[in-house]
Structures are given as C-alpha cells and as structure tokens.
Amino acid sequence: MSTTAGVSPDPSRAADHEALLAVRDLTVSYGGLTAVKRVSLDIAPGSVVGMIGPNGAGKTTFIDALMGYTPAQGRIEFLGQRIDQLSVHRRAMLGLTRTFQSLELFEDLTVRENLQVSAEDPKWWTIFLDVIIPNRDVRAPRVDELLDAVGLKNYEDMLPAHLSHGDRQAVSIARAMVSDARLLLLDEPGAGLDRNEKEGLSQLLREVAADGTTIFLIDHDMDLVMPTCDHIFVLEFGELIASGPPDRIRSDPRVIEAYLGTSGDNTEVAAAERAAGEPGGEDR
C-alpha cells in the first residue's frame, strides 16, 4: 500500500522539488512491532506543519527516525541532501533539530547555559582558547533575544529543575530555536501548558515560521494544532490516515474515529467514512 499519494493532493505536493524535507517510505520496526509504516511526506519551507494521532500512534518514533535516534528504512532528504545515513549531530549541523516530549533539558546547566550550548558551534581547537579565555560568547545577543521572547530572562541563572513545567517547556523550545535550525521538530510542545500559555506558544510558532524557520509540530491537542498549522498529517498505528488543511482534518470521520473509538453509531460513521473516502481515492 502506498501512502505517498494519499499524503498531499495539496500545494506542498506541487512544491515537491523545493520541499525542505522529503520523506519516502519511512519504516521503523523493533521487535515484532512496526511503529511507523511506509510514511511518505513533504514539508514545504516556511510552513507550520502538524502531525496528530492518538497515543502510541508512532508520532515520536517518526521524529526519532527523522533525527537518526532510531534505525529506520526509507529515504530522508533534507535541503536536497540525503541524510538518512548520517549520525544525529551531523543532521543537527545541517539545520535540523528537535525538542523532546520529556523535554530532556540539560539539568546540570543553568537556563542560559542550556541555550548557549545549543547556540554555539565551537571548533575542535576551541578547547585551547577555552582554558585561557573562557567567556567568548559571540552568540550572546541571540541567546538574550530568545530568553526574552519566551519570558525566561529573569530565570536565566536558575537550574531547570527549579522551574515550573511551563517554563521548562519554554526552555526546551527556546533551546531548539536558538540554534537557528532550518527545521524544528517539536514533540508535544503543548503538554502541560495552560490555555493562555498555549495561545502564546501558538503565536510564537507563527512568528518563527514567518521569519523563515519551518516547524513540524507533533501534538494531540487540537487547541494548539488547529489554529497553528497550515497543514496537518494524521498518524494512526504508524500509518498516515489523513492529510490536509485543519478544516478538512477536523471533519474527517476517520480522524474522529481514531480519537473517540468506534462511534456509538457505527453505520453513520461508516457512511461518512465512505463519503469522505470516495472522492479523493488517492487521498487515502
């Protein structure tokens, strides 16, 4: 079964040759379990793209595979270059970075240092200068800018462990952004944020995208995904089951089913499913 065709009858398809990230037939299996099955998709530069799906659908595994944390089959092109054989830090050096669902902050570094580590790109010989003149922080303005943007300026010397969950989430996002990556993969950035914080986050992501950084956002929280994303992919049991702009996704019966289980009224959903499925035969 090819899900390639089903992914994008939309603008990003036409823009295939200039896709920032192109994924073809990505499959991840461990043990007997196939967590991601032949997923193909394109991400256009400058967009905010979302991926939703129930718990355990394979969203995080998908990001792991894109970054190189988990072995995967298939082809991944970033900026026109194949990256699927590169190590994680090599992919990061090309301009791909991510956040983690469990945040994975550097708990032994202060908030500011968390951002500095991500902003700096020292050379191998830097160590010899470092033991003599340590404080050569050329990226300081950028770090300050982001600390301001996420409202952490007053906490910059604290350890992450002393922050609230929302602030920790902010550190995680700021740390990813400060590296000036071309593509940010955000894994559940809305988790644990209250409604106001989510609105702030949504706005921030739109601004970042407007500045030219592309965003790939995994979340199952519709409050965040729907108003933020230009385009949404839906993953269930490792497979892409739908793709399109938010409005279409919201009314897609398969999506509703994936979230709520078989509806109380089976026939209705089945009918709706067929109705939605028919016209875009290649849509599924």
Partner: peptide
C-alpha cells in the same frame, strides 16, 4: 461534552 474534551471547543 466528550468531544469538547478531546478535540477542543472548535471541533
């Protein structure tokens, strides 16, 4: 009520 809880008010 349930769908509101899961898919957000807009849903």
């Amino acid at each position: 009520l349930l769908e509101a809880g899961y898919l957000g008010e807009l849903a």
